[in-house]
Write a protein that binds this DNA or RNA. Structure first.
Length: 793
DNA sequence: GAGTTTGAAACT
DNA sequence: CAGTTTCAAACTC
């Protein structure tokens, strides 16, 4: 809305008009400046006015900006090549490039524009005038378009990149707009130029997170870029490859229905080059191409109606397209929805929880997305970060521990965000590091985190889950074995690990993903999986059925209560968070010392509700002997036994935790999931999967990092904000003891093992001194209560 | 990587 | 509600 960019745009125009060169050109050109000016003004007002709304669009913009910048450079070099191909046009292209670079030389640009316009045709010229803001660039673009088809394609690519950059800086909405314009360009090429010009200045001025935007932009570019423009394309693709994968994943997500919804016009490539688009992505198949287009369109939708309006001013056709844009928005939103699902779930009315929220809600998602998007745009980098990025969730899932670390650092930088309910941070579970995707995702995740911070915990968790779904879907396509291996490899970042269902079709609680209210994602190695957005209806129906039998079936297995403001408040003063398994375990042979035990897996002690035999739960025995009271001693013994006899892995984890705690930075890098889980759950072996989100839904208000880590996999079910309140206000029944015991005992156990004495769960005991840790340690109840809350928002 | 163990989930 | 079966994760080799 208030983005500085507007101001910039406005000034340039005025400058152009005032410049003697401009006047001279006007006199020379048959076209009168008045028209152009008039148009430009309208465009500016419209575009900018709309921009805010557009910006509201998600996250994406912020992250990618950095990348866009890079790409932008690439694009420029590439352009010359195209120009060479085109011959006469080459000059124009170069000029355009220069113009893009040097918006200052308005006069020259205008001249060029006129030239180009003349060459291209009057129609092209008019649009240029209309886009007086970007007069220079527009003409150039027109030339490209008018020129050889190749040039056009290149021009589009460039423009798109620029647009992307703009989006990153100002808003994603611009990009879509540009793309559309390009597509239409053949007829109306000039509009694109504007995008170019705007982008240039915006990029510099905004200084937003180019990288985050880049991923999206890259996707768009890749898809849009025609094969012909290989040189440019190569550059773009290289940078974009990760993004491309991301896009592909998105594509997978989108049901065909969505695609069909998209307006054909948008889909069609520029200059009547619907074909070109398809041609553009060699990697992508035709069907995919269409999907890609959808994605682009979604971005366009993000761009907001305002852009459309601007376009419309240029052409009536564009006006007609607006509805289509809206549809695109819906597409995009859907994607977001999946990512954001968790948060939206709250909104979902049904107590059905996650399932309903998860699957459906394109509409709801949209609303939420809009909210998120808005803050994102308005704000500088921070704001952007705040906005939930679609990619983020994916990142979380896909990102390896390493990537996660990076993200974390970013988050930390944001500071305030981290301090936030934190759940957001946790959302970005590091899980499996996924190659190229990870980086992109990490970027996105960083953005998401902020967004989550803005929206509050709810968003983060939801988003994480949603991302998980997205990622899962994308990844699912991969062979299950590979996926699973990835997960395993990923590390230890078990967090990413997912289900491996073979017979349940991921529609039963056997399936961890389904039980967590999340769609299966890539990391899943499940077979015949129905837990995918495609089978939303089935999933919802199944969920309902299961819920009918057990309303709490999808509630977190472990209910934890923690202070919303753990770090600050928690300390000793607050009552210790309580955590327990909602239903209790029934272990007979594992002595509750292995992850077979859900209590142990959840990092909580056994309670009266447990029917376990020979309970030796390190977090707290059923008889209550252990953990709580005497934090250290009994626990230590038990822990030692457990560690030695049972889990050496625990020690490792503890050590890791300790290290992390000691070195926050280092800790951050560690897989968030682990951290989260570890913080609360403790002793899971690094290899061991972190307890699932559903399992441990802990909401850490405390330090953002810790909280983030905890979130690990987000539960669609729980809305953080509400949860927090509930948890805080309503500690669980027997929890207090358990909680203390959990916190203390694990910590004590940990301490014994780890020199640093970094306890995850037991903030109270040792960490009274370090509030931050405590906060992280404090357990938040995500359990049942949380679910209800999920439905709300 | 395959096989075993385990306990929750589902079923009867 | 209890017993049994099914299932997938956790674990072991």
């Amino acid at each position: 809305m208030d983005t500085p960019e507007r101001n910039q745009i406005g000034t340039p125009i005025s400058k152009f008009e005032d410049s003697p060169v401009f006047n001279y050109i006007n006199s020379l050109s048959p076209i009168k400046p008045v028209k152009s000016i008039h148009i430009t003004q309208t465009f500016n007002s419209l575009s900018f006015a709309s921009l805010p709304s557009v910006f509201t669009s998600p996250h994406v913009s912020s992250h990618k900006e950095s990348r866009f910048l890079i790409r932008h450079h690439f694009s420029d070099p590439s352009k010359p090549e195209f120009s060479s191909d085109n011959g006469d046009k080459v000059n124009t292209n170069e000029e355009v490039m220069d113009a893009a670079r040097l918006c200052d030389n308005t006069a020259e640009l205008q001249e060029k524009n006129f030239d180009t316009g003349s060459s291209i045709g009057e129609a092209s010229i008019e649009p240029l005038n209309e886009h007086s803001n970007l007069p220079m660039e527009l003409p150039r673009t027109l030339k490209y378009d008018c020129g050889s088809p190749d040039c056009k394609s290149t021009a589009y690519h460039v423009i798109e990149t620029d647009c992307l950059s703009e989006l990153a800086g100002t808003s994603a909405s611009l990009v879509p707009f540009v793309q559309e314009s390009f597509k239409k360009v053949p007829f109306e090429g000039e509009v694109h130029i504007q995008g170019m010009c705007q982008i240039g200045p915006k990029k510099e001025g905004t200084g937003c997170d180019w990288e985050s935007l880049i991923s999206d932009a890259a996707d768009l570019l890749i898809f849009d870029s025609p094969n012909e423009t290989e040189a440019f394309k190569g550059l773009v693709q290289k940078s974009m490859d990760p993004g491309e994968s991301f896009c592909s994943s998105l594509k997978l997500r989108f049901p065909q229905d969505d695609v069909s919804d998209l307006p054909k016009t948008q889909l069609v490539g520029p200059l009547g080059s619907g074909e070109q688009h398809e041609m553009e992505d060699p990697s992508t198949q035709p069907g995919e191409v269409t999907e890609v287009k959808e994605i682009d369109q979604t971005q366009e939708s993000l761009a907001s109606i305002s852009l459309n309006k601007c376009m419309a001013s240029n052409t009536s056709e564009q006006m007609e397209n607006e509805p289509a844009f809206n549809l695109h928005r819906g597409m995009r939103r859907r994607c977001l929805v999946y990512e954001m699902a968790g948060a939206h779930i709250k909104n979902l009315d049904n107590g059905s929880n996650c399932s309903s929220s998860m699957l459906s809600q394109s509409d709801e998602m949209i609303a939420s997305a809009d909210k998120q998007l808005v803050p994102f745009k308005s704000g500088g980098d921070s704001s952007r970060r705040i906005l939930p990025g679609i990619g983020l969730h994916l990142n979380a899932l896909a990102t390896t521990s390493k990537d996660y670390k990076v993200v974390k650092h970013e988050i930390l930088a944001t500071g305030g965000q981290l301090s936030m309910p934190s759940s957001s941070a946790s959302l970005h579970s590091p899980t499996s590091g996924q190659e190229s995707l990870n980086k992109l995702l990490t970027l996105a995740s960083s953005e998401k985190d902020p967004s989550s911070a803005i929206n509050g915990v709810e968003v983060t968790e939801d988003a994480s889950q949603a991302t998980a779904y997205l990622a899962s879907e994308e990844f699912n396509q991969n062979s299950p074995k590979k996926k699973r291996r990835r997960l395993e490899h990923a590390g230890e970042s078990d967090a990413c690990k997912r289900c491996n269902c073979k017979k349940s079709k991921c529609l039963k609680l056997y399936c961890e993903c389904f039980a967590a209210g999340v769609y299966c994602i890539e990391p899943c190695s499940c077979q015949e999986c129905f837990n995918k957005p495609i089978h939303e209806d089935t999933v919802l129906a199944t969920r309902k059925q299961i819920e009918s039998r057990n309303p709490l079936a999808f509630a977190p297995k472990v209910i934890r209560s923690s202070d919303s403001v753990p770090d600050i408040v928690d300390e000793s003063s607050k009552t210790p968070a309580s955590a327990r398994h909602k239903r209790g375990c029934n272990c007979k042979k594992s002595s509750c010392l292995k992850k077979y035990c859900e209590c142990y897996q959840g990092g909580v002690g056994c309670s009266i509700s447990c029917r376990c035999e020979g309970c030796k739960n390190a977090f707290g025995r059923k008889d209550g002997s252990t953990v709580l009271g005497t934090e250290a001693e009994p626990e230590e013994e038990e822990i030692e036994k457990v560690e030695k006899s049972v889990d050496k892995s625990l020690q490792k984890t503890l050590i890791q935790k300790d290290e992390e705690q000691n070195n926050p930075d280092s800790a951050l890098p560690a897989t968030p999931l682990r951290l989260c889980r570890l913080s609360v759950q403790l002793p899971f072996s690094s290899k061991g999967k972190p307890p699932r989100s559903s399992f441990l839904t802990t909401i850490g208000s405390s330090s953002g990092l810790q909280n983030v880590q905890r979130l690990g996999k987000p539960n669609f079910l729980r809305p953080q904000s509400k949860f927090e309140k509930q948890f805080q206000t309503v500690p669980e029944d027997g929890l207090p003891e358990i909680l203390q015991g959990n916190n203390c005992s694990p910590s004590s156990g940990i301490k014994s093992t780890s020199p640093n004495s970094k306890r995850v769960s037991p903030p109270h005991c040792d960490f009274g001194s370090s509030p931050g840790r405590r906060s992280s340690r404090k357990l938040i109840l995500q359990s049942i209560p949380s679910f209800p809350s999920l439905t709300q928002p």
